[in-house]
Write a protein that binds this DNA or RNA. Structure first.
Length: 799
DNA sequence: CCGTGTTCTCTTTTT
DNA sequence: GAGAACACGG
């Protein structure tokens, strides 16, 4: 591109772009595709077609010749989003957009992009290219060792707290030395934390390893310490685009900042064909960020909502485009979403609208137990499926992973095909981590953590005492543990143990030779499995679970083979990198005919015809843990908002009167956020009021529309779609939310007992099911018919 | 050193 | 209610 081209585009801001690229876009979206300038902020409400805008923007840059694929860097939140974007761009421009090869554009996550940069530039920051990426469990293990060494958990420094604190420092780009300079030496806890942080950092260094947060932070440090390295990437990436910008943390923000800095004249090569400015330097790359502060749900991970709210301040010449038209959901769903989110103050005013019409009402249901709630979900899914909704278009969301259990129980019993996205992942299974540890140790012999994991797996008689002896020897020689294995003969250990250690050393050496010679992950893994006897040991036991473990390890072998097939050039390192960075959503297969179960967090960015949002209860949504933190309740509300806006046609909100956690069950109350939805939008199959005081099966017509509650709370929403409010009717369950739930204590009933209910009068207990607080009595009333009542909280007395 | 049985923590969300 | 950490006996 010549200087003249650049100028003309910058001035009139309207490049000549093939009309077909703009097909079907509304004026705002067109503007977002076509604007040319230093920086662009696209505030994209949920479902406003931002992926479409982003892909067309990239395609238009390529099609008009303003950019070559090489000059594009697009950052997404997940690998799945990256793949999808790459495919769509490819489809639009009709040519290769392969980010894997260095000739293509980079469309990847923050973490993948940084690993690519760091593997190339590893020496500069004192690492070897084969560095290990520690996942949270690995970091936790290392921290745990250190905490134990220092006996630090005595003063509230548990591994979990320390891990969170270290992560926080790194996300704020505060390294150990910076932290040390500002530490309050009078506070023993802070001093202890500093020492842990120091040893943790040293431990990672020694192991030639980086944790998740390091991937970003170290790249920023690299760019700041070596301007000529930064210039390499600044010259290359002339167009930087960031998706889900609201969830970037400070380190990620700094990374973008470094990448888009103007390039100083001394870093501009003589022969550049790019447009230099008056001083001989190059202007910074153009930056496009897309985000929605209403969907910021990762503050706990350091995401800084200010990054988007204050974007215009940080990049003063920024153009802002607001996308409010929603192409995903029905008006009913959007009304609910708008009403909920409008309770958050301090936000960019935004109101989603659609032209598709109001659609179905939102369906609500209150179960007696988590199991009962799950049964409702399963029944409705069966009905939807019968009516023609494919399973893959149905999703069930929940706040915490522990809520999956009753859902799984019922789904299995109902024969519904489902897949849990995230949760206990394949790669977190012990046997997989064992096999992976062999591979990691081969790729990175300095990784003591990986070696310790496999030292005695499978059992070869190397216990804690032997490990300590090896470690002592390694420390004395100042070498990694791995190098100590070869010296086992000098350590005065038993002949059997010595033999075992030397065998292991030999096996690892052989595998390392394969790796150095460019061997494939699959071949190396097979050699390691055969040589170590890991599979044989699992096959030999009588533990029935080991059968599944064998299958899992075999599955891992297929994964390595599959990886080699898809990436012919990839070796062991590429395989390990990919595994380390897989995200929950990457597991979703679009073709599969299964229902997707996932947390609200992993639901972000996805959409389904029918969405079930379960566990809409106090202490769950908002989660109990969130109420203590500043902004916690607002973030939980955004989480609820994200969940609602995933639904295209049907939305189901459900909760339960009781919830079991920790083994025993407790009474749950409806979420405060339910009150924020205009009551007329929800058709309660069984409202919280029905479930507590009326025993269920209340005629639906009474619940359907027109309760006056809610409006009093002062939120604004379009009333046009609703019928006029009838004269004030008793608010069905408002008081139940803030007021106390009735509690019958240890009242126990059994079949044959006679009871009196405040609404239904006298009746006889037919049967009692469930345990403890969950027990339900089936009662035949003299006048009201048969009802199911939750014994602990129903308004009843024993006669 | 290994297996078994017991107690104790733990659940927020994740790249 | 599960998984990890610890204690104890072989």
């Amino acid at each position: 591109m010549t200087s003249a081209d650049f100028q003309s585009i910058a001035l009139d801001g309207r490049p000549a772009v093939d009309e077909r690229l703009l097909d079907g876009l509304n004026p705002r979206q067109r503007e977002a595709v076509l604007y040319r300038g230093r920086s662009l902020l696209i505030v994209a409400g949920a479902g406003s077609g931002k992926t479409s805008v982003l892909t067309r923007r990239i395609a238009s840059l390529l099609a008009s010749g303003e950019a070559s694929p090489l000059q594009i860097l697009a950052i997404t939140f997940t690998n799945k989003a990256a793949n999808e974007m790459r495919e769509r761009v490819q489809h639009l421009v009709g040519r290769g957009a392969d980010s894997r090869s260095d000739t293509g554009m980079w469309i990847s996550t923050f973490h993948s992009a940084c690993v690519r940069i760091l593997r190339r530039q590893a020496e500069q920051i004192g690492l070897k290219a084969g560095f290990t990426i520690y996942d949270s469990a690995d970091s936790r293990a290392l921290i745990k060792r250190i905490v134990k060494e220092l006996d630090a958990d005595t003063l509230n420094l548990t591994p979990g707290i320390v891990a969170g604190k270290i992560s926080k420092q790194k996300n704020e780009l505060i390294d150990v030395e910076t932290y040390a300079r500002n530490v309050n030496t009078d506070d023993p806890a802070e001093v202890a934390f500093l020492e842990i942080y120091r040893r943790y950092t040293a431990g990672l260094r020694r192991a030639n390893a980086l944790d998740f947060d390091d991937l970003i932070a170290e790249t920023v440090h690299l760019f700041r310490a070596f301007p000529e390295v930064a210039a390499l990437y600044q010259r290359r990436f002339r167009h930087v685009l960031v998706d889900e910008y609201q969830d970037t943390n400070h380190a990620q923000y700094a990374l973008i900042r470094e990448l888009t800095r103007p390039i100083k004249p001394q870093h501009v090569p003589e022969d550049t064909r790019m447009a230099v400015d008056a001083s001989g330097g190059l202007p910074g790359a153009s930056l496009t960020v897309v985000g929605d502060s209403d969907q910021s749900i990762y503050a706990f991970r350091g995401a800084d909502i200010r990054n988007i709210v204050e974007f215009e301040r940080d990049y003063p010449e920024t153009k802002t485009v607001l996308l409010e038209q929603n192409y995903r959901s029905t008006q009913n769903i959007l009304d609910a979403a708008n009403a909920v989110i409008s309770n958050n103050f301090d936000r960019l005013e935004k109101n989603l609208f659609t032209t598709v019409g109001s659609g179905h009402p939102i369906i609500g249901y209150t179960g007696y137990s988590g199991h009962d709630e799950a049964q409702f979900v399963a029944d409705e899914i069966s009905a939807l499926h019968t009516a023609g909704t494919p399973y893959r278009e149905i999703a069930v969301f929940y706040r915490t992973n522990s809520q999956t259990r009753p859902l799984e129980d019922v789904f299995i019993r109902s024969g519904l095909p489902y897949k849990i996205i995230g949760g206990t992942k394949f790669y977190e299974r012990a046997e997989i981590k064992d096999a992976m540890a062999y591979l990691i140790q081969v790729a990175n012999p300095a990784d003591d953590l990986a070696l310790r994991r496999i030292l005695n797996t499978p059992k070869r008689g190397i216990g804690p005492a032997t490990e300590a002896a090896l470690q002592a020897h390694a420390d004395k020689m100042g070498v990694p543990l791995r190098d100590a294995l070869g010296d086992a003969g000098q350590l005065d250990l038993g002949p059997k143990v010595t033999r075992a250690i030397l065998d292991l050393a030999e096996l690892l050496d052989e595998a390392e030779a394969m790796h150095v010679a460019g061997g494939k992950a699959a071949d190396i893994l097979l050699a390691l499995l055969a040589g170590s006897g890991l599979l044989d040991a699992l096959r030999a036991t009588r533990d029935p679970q080991d059968e599944a473990r064998v299958e899992n390890v075999e599955e891992l072998v297929s994964v390595t083979k599959e990886h080699a097939k898809n990436n012919p050039d990839a070796g062991l390192l590429e395989f390990l990198t990919e595994v380390a960075l897989v995200a929950a959503t990457d597991e979703i297969e679009d073709e599969s005919g299964t229902i997707s179960l996932m947390t609200l967090h992993t639901a972000k960015g996805l959409e389904y015809d029918a969405v079930f949002l379960t566990g809409v209860e106090e202490d769950l949504l908002p989660h109990r843990m969130s109420s203590g933190e500043p902004g916690g309740l607002a973030e939980e509300r955004r989480l609820f908002y994200v969940g609602i806006t995933r639904a295209k046609k049907r939305l189901f909100l459900s909760l339960s009167m009781t919830r079991s956690s920790f083994g025993d069950t407790s009474v749950a109350m409806p979420s405060r956020y339910l009150q924020e939805i205009p009551p007329g939008l929800i058709d309660w199959r069984q409202s919280p009021g029905d479930a507590t005081s009326r025993g269920g099966t209340r005629p639906r017509a009474l619940n359907a529309r027109g309760y006056a509650g809610g409006a009093a709370r002062g939120f604004s929403y379009s009333t046009e779609a609703l019928p006029p409010a009838p004269p004030r009717v008793k608010r069905e369950w408002a008081s139940e939310i803030t007021g106390k739930v009735r509690d019958n204590g240890d009242l126990t009933l059994e079949a044959g007992d006679r009871i009196r209910h405040t609404d239904f009068g006298d009746g006889k207990v037919v049967a009692v099911t469930g345990q403890g607080t969950k027990s339900i009595a089936e009662v035949q009333f003299e006048t009201a018919g048969k009802k199911r009542l939750l014994i602990k909280i129903a308004p009843i007395e024993k006669l």
